[in-house]
């Protein structure tokens, strides 16, 4: 009995020292490396992640030159964040004249990317949405061509240029122009400027449209249900009428 006890005690000691050695090794390793470069946690705004997962689902990006405005993404989207218009180009191909993604609605599910027949939609690795990154202007970094489609090219250039400057340095005319497009305090801001922006009126219209759509959908669903119920009823009656045959 004493021997088995002794065995237990020595085993316990041995495992204790093994554990201490393991954590001690970590401790020395991490103290040695300067500034915690090996640390798993990152100080986000200071040190952005260098490696993002291969299948990271960041901002949506649409290659406007191959988009055929087929509305497949719109159909697939569970939150209705797309707004798009198209027109025929010289080759009679459908091309996007406007392709807006309301990033305040987007849930980054990636269903639109799966639905896209031309692979024009993709999810980028960029995940930074911090408004402060763009001079406290509630502008977001635009790494997609979506905005370019929505605004005139000249406007885009001007917007990007002006939005980088401190507000105080802008000329009154520029400021007025900018304020017409961007709400400085973000009070009337609806949706994020993933591409262009929605005015309150547009927002109201979109909401009304969505409501109507939803009502229609509900009505259709109710009708379908009633129809199905009626069919089931007739089916249920049919065998009994036919009898064992």
């Amino acid at each position: 009995m004493i021997l088995s006890w002794l065995n237990d005690v020595t085993e316990g000691l041995q495992s204790f020292f093994t554990g201490m050695r393991t954590t001690g090794k970590f401790l020395v390793e991490n103290l040695r490396d300067e500034g915690g470069a090996k640390a798993v946690t990152r100080q986000y705004p200071l040190h952005a992640a260098e490696v993002v997962g291969e299948r990271q689902r960041g901002h949506l990006h649409n290659k406007a030159d191959i988009c055929i405005v087929c509305h497949a993404c719109d159909t697939a989207c569970p939150v209705d964040c797309f707004k798009m218009d198209g027109e025929r180009d010289g080759n009679n191909k459908m091309r996007a004249s406007r392709f807006d993604i309301d990033l305040s609605k987007c849930i980054y599910c990636g269903l639109c990317v799966r639905a896209c027949p031309t692979d024009s939609l993709s999810m980028t690795a960029d995940f930074q949405m911090d408004p402060r990154l763009d001079g406290e202007r509630y502008l977001f970094r635009r790494n997609s061509s979506q905005l370019d489609v929505h605004l005139d090219a000249a406007d885009v250039g001007r917007l990007q240029q002006l939005s980088r400057l401190p507000r105080e340095q802008l000329s009154p005319a520029d400021r007025e122009w900018l304020d017409a497009r961007i709400d400085v305090r973000g009070q009337h801001l609806i949706g994020m400027y993933g591409l262009g922006y929605f005015t309150p009126e547009e927002k109201a219209q979109a909401d009304a449209e969505r409501e109507a759509k939803k009502k229609a959908k509900d009505a259709a669903a109710a009708a379908a249900k009633a129809k199905a119920a009626a069919e089931a009823k007739t089916k249920a009656e049919a065998p009994s009428a036919g009898g064992p045959g």
């Binding site: 970590f26 401790l27 991490n30 090996k38 640390a39 798993v40 946690t41 100080q43």
Partner: peptide, 11 residues
Amino acid sequence: AAIQRRHGPNS
């Protein structure tokens, strides 16, 4: 923090 590869309080 060092043992767990974190930074610990530093902000």
